[in-house]
Amino acid sequence: MIALATTGRILRQLRHDRRTVALLLVVPALLLTLLYFMYEDTPHTFDRIALIMLGIFPFTIMFLVTSIAMLRERTSGTLERLLTTPLRKTDLLFGYGLAFSLAAVVQGAVATGVAYGLLGLDTSASAGLILLIAVVDAVLGVAIGLLCSAFARTEFQAVQFLPVVVVPQILLCGLFVPRSQMAGWLQAISDVLPLTYAVDALGSAGATMWRDVTIVAGAAVVALILAAATLRRRTP
């Protein structure tokens, strides 16, 4: 109940911030459109890259939004106060997870709608499955964002976690160089990065896809548990 109230509160905060809502909904679709024109002459390349982007956008955007939102909670003193109320740490984290996952559903629906409907994206998996994977990727972004915000004291620090935590995962996920062509040690690193499986899931089908989705969801759960463990009621 408290978790759901927290979800409602976070969504209400989002609703009051119209510009953020507009950016959340429109930007992924606009970037996909940009890709479409970049690869106008090579539709197969567009299909490959746009598909991967449908997973990377929600992950990256939700990571950023969540870590800033959680940091604000910390710096505004509301976190200190919340932790003196009957709210449990898991209520707060679950509340955040659910709120931004719902936002990711809407964002993903717009992005996949534009990609398949207007830009003629062609994939072996159905648009519905791709949307599901995109939302799971967003949940992963939310969970890692919640975890990272525990290690940031300021907004500047929080934003720096993007190049530290997110960019290496994007570089090594197989978007730029197929994983099979990477040096062994790079492949090994890429094997333990959750975004690798998020991207892999988009391009595979059947059992492999569900295995990948399970790994991503599992990584999100682990990140949430770690986030709960690093959230301290008592501070210096």
């Binding site: 109940m1 408290i2 109230a5 927290t6 409602g8 509160r9 209400r12 905060q13 009051h16 911030d17 505004s76 003193g77 509301t78 200190e80 106060r81 919340l82 003196t84 109320t85 009957p86 709210l87």
Partner: peptide, 28 residues
């Protein structure tokens, strides 16, 4: 125990009513 921090700790991007209703929900 009810606690009011020195710097007001309410959500600036919510209305007064929405803030109060959220904190009410925490106490059921």
């Amino acid at each position: 125990v009810g606690y009011v921090t020195q710097a007001p700790s309410v959500y600036a991007d919510l209305s007064v009513r929405e803030n109060a209703r959220y904190f009410a929900a925490l106490y059921g």
